[in-house]
């Protein structure tokens, strides 16, 4: 079985769909999803991407779309506790899943320690990529509570930022690790 084009090349041409009517069988499917602790039920087309589902069905627009092919990480959310590209997931395939988006990190309460660390370190400028970075950091520090800077750099390859040059983000993750450890120590 062959894929038509080499994936790594940017396709110069928009490829057709072999004359098929592309909107055949758009029957909507019911999806149940728990997002930021709240249960939702929606009927959507199978092709509806999770990113669009969150943004345009649930109006959780904090999850941003940057590249729509899994490279930039702006649309990163937690899917059953793990970071995933919401532009590479179909909402229907996540029936029953638990999702955390940036809106769910702290709700309207005080900033989460990771958010606070980003604020203190000036780890964001335009802020468009930031939601993805926050969720990557939360997953990473959950797995590695006391990372060194090289481990942080490796973890941050999950996401792209065009404004900051990354240095302050690395500082922020390091600081966030300390904040979370201190908080864990209290508890």
């Amino acid at each position: 079985m062959t894929l038509i084009l080499r994936a790594r090349f940017f396709p110069p041409l928009r490829c057709g769909t072999d004359g098929e009517d592309p909107v055949m069988s758009p029957e909507k499917i019911t999806v149940r999803m728990t997002v930021n602790g709240k249960a939702y039920v929606r009927d959507v087309e199978p092709r509806y991407l999770l990113a669009d589902f969150l943004r345009h069905e649930l109006y959780l627009t904090g999850t941003h779309i940057g590249c729509e092919h899994g490279v930039c990480g702006a649309c990163t959310v937690l899917i059953n506790g793990k970071t995933g590209r919401s532009c590479l997931q179909f909402a229907v395939a996540l029936d029953g899943a638990e999702i955390t988006t940036v809106e769910g990190i702290a709700g309207d309460g005080p900033l989460h320690p990771v958010q606070e660390a980003f604020h203190q370190a000036h780890a964001l400028q335009c802020g468009y990529c930031t939601p993805g970075f926050l969720l990557t950091t939360i997953e990473f520090l959950g797995q590695n509570p006391d990372p060194d800077r090289d481990e942080i750099r490796q973890a941050l390859t999950n996401n792209m930022c065009r404004c900051t040059g990354y240095l302050n983000i690395i500082d922020a993750v390091e600081d966030a690790a300390g904040r979370l450890r201190a908080k864990g120590g209290e508890a």
Binding site: M1, R47, L49, G70, C87, L88, Q89, A93
Partner: peptide, 28 residues
């Protein structure tokens, strides 16, 4: 040939988003 398997989707869905690949059927 109309169908593709959807497992993790990390290679398949980018191709579908760019419409390099438009399978008529996805088997999840």
């Amino acid at each position: 040939a109309e169908a593709r398997i959807l497992a993790g989707g990390q290679s398949l869905v980018p191709l579908m988003n760019m419409r390099i690949l438009s399978p008529a059927v996805l088997i999840d």
